[in-house]
Design a protein around this nucleic acid. Structure first.
Lengths: 314, 314
DNA sequence: ATGAATGGATGCGATAACGGCATTGGACCT
DNA sequence: AGGTCCAATGCCGTTATCGCATCCATTCAT
């Protein structure tokens, strides 16, 4: 069964004439005649009664007409839908982020994006970095915002740096410093995030490389909680620079061997898959946004930001 | 846009493999590959991501899959529906009859028909003979039961004779007769049906040919009413032999020049149109039914019945 | 009644669509 | 590295489809 014959059938049934239908479809009348015959043979049914003057739908033809119209319409709808998707006019964009990045960055970009492309439904999936990378791999999300390991094969675009900050209790010996070396924290009571946080991974990595075993006082999933504890003098909190803090909150950047302990947050996606314009649009928007403002930009990362290129590497 | 490519797309999407889909559809893998490419080009959309190992639906492909499946299913349904219609398993049969024929004959045949073909919906259209013939002409009904004029070009099958009966008041001079010639009614007060009734038309025709102007006492649309009036002695009622009467009701057959005044009730249809098996089935049933019993068969029409052929003339 | 006009059917040849086979090329596994 | 799996592609035969011209039946007008 062919769509062409169904289309012709509907055209003829609506115009009640082979010739008219042919004209309307910009084909010859013989083509119509043949296709209708093919359809009739295939279905084993007479669709039209032929008179000298014109044709007329049979009772069975009448019954099948509604269904046929529906099919033709459905196909048109499919085509239209596809065209919209191709133009990125409509669709679903699935974005994965960590809760922190969502709050501090993605949410703002998303606002702009929604204004610019109101017909695109964005689905946000919150998860840890590692899980997000799996989701990219599996195709469950189109795009993720994570700090990417260096050996990853995904396409990425670096957006902004984030680093580990130390929040020092008021009056602490290090409270006046703007930067702190990892070694200096060796014997300090520490307030740390859980292992699922990229900040914690960075910190653990630096400790391991420095042969330091940190004194962990508290391990929490709440950066804000750690900051409170620090302010009350319980210890030094290690938090991501992307956190939104009180303006007068004193912090120091964590360094390892004189270099800022941090990574680039990137938009990453899978170039082996079809990359839609929806996706690149979002990435571009995020990139432009990060050039102007990004979370934690007041925390001395200018040099990191300037040094790194932001290219569409694969 | 071609149905074939949509089918292939669905098959691949469900099996998540070109080769598997090809095997399932009994075609080569290359055919699949091409059709998917054609579809992708046509829609301007990537439907699958190609990896070294297999393929995977893109997000857009996912979105279009549901619609595509729906289309494939709709087409299957159409095909199935058509197949049923072709086999006469299902469908709508539109039958036109006069109210009298309906009550006395068609209703009984219809009962049998419904038992035999329970899935066929029968629509009954009641109307006068002339209107029914127009409806056949226009294709508004598939089949009609009427007394057909001799010059009609429709296909017909003669079912049973019907004739004009005279109902005589008790004690009337002609009350013992079994047959009455038209001339004998010349000066009798008559109880007649309206002109829309075939019986009346026959009677009027015979009167005209006999140069008789009948004395019309009552003109009614109710045969039963006429019979009542006749029994009360108001005059002679002229009614169709198809009427159901009390067993002891005395009647005489009306003759014109020695011949029974009557016609054949036929099933008629338009052979220029597609004639479905539903229709011929009903005709055959009606014919078989009439061989065994028909309304008014106890009124001396055996010779008429035997003399006429019942062929599928066009 | 007869010829013109209308409208669908059909034979024929050109062409596009389609499928199969064999082969290529990339990714993955061992 | 070699083998395997799987999709892509070049080549070629087959089928589907179309347009043109023509035919045929019916209808309409003169």
């Amino acid at each position: 069964m062919n769509l062409r014959s169904i289309r012709y059938f509907v055209a003829v049934a609506e115009g009640l004439s082979y010739s008219r239908a042919a004209e309307q479809l910009n084909i010859s009348q013989s083509a119509i005649s043949r296709q209708i015959q093919i359809l009739e043979d295939e279905l084993g049914i007479k669709l039209f009664d032929r008179f000298g003057r014109g044709v007329q739908l049979t009772a069975t033809g009448e019954e099948l007409l509604a269904e046929s119209k529906a099919i033709v319409n459905k196909v048109s709808a499919l085509h239209e839908h596809a065209r919209e998707l191709a133009g990125g006019i409509r669709g679903v964009l699935r974005i994965g982020t960590t809760p922190q990045t969502l709050e501090s960055f993605v949410a703002k970009v998303l606002n702009q994006y929604r204004q610019k492309y109101p017909n695109i439904a964005v689905t946000l999936i919150e998860d840890g970095s590692a899980n997000l990378i799996s989701k990219i791999e599996a195709g469950d999300v189109d795009l993720a915002f994570v700090a990417l390991p260096r050996n990853s094969h995904f396409a990425k675009r670096e957006l902004f740096p984030f680093g580990a900050l130390a929040v020092l209790p008021p009056g602490h010996a290090l409270a006046t410093r703007r930067t702190i070396e990892i070694d200096e924290l060796a014997n300090q009571p520490l307030l740390l995030l859980r292992h699922s946080f990229m900040t914690r991974k960075l910190f653990d990595g630096a400790c391991a490389l420095s042969y330091i075993t940190p004194k962990i006082l508290v391990e929490s999933s709440s950066p804000h909680g750690l900051v409170s504890l620090a302010n009350e003098g319980h210890g030094i909190a290690i938090i991501p620079s992307t956190m939104r803090l009180r303006p007068n909150q004193h912090t120091a950047a964590l360094h390892y061997e004189g270099r800022q302990l941090g990574l680039w947050i990137s938009a990453i996606w899978d170039n082996r898959r079809n990359v839609r314009s929806l996706t690149t649009d979002f990435v571009n928007l995020a990139h432009d946004f990060a050039r102007i403002s990004y979370p934690g930009q007041n925390f001395h990362f200018k040099e990191m930001f300037d040094s790194a290129s932001s290219s569409m590497a694969s």
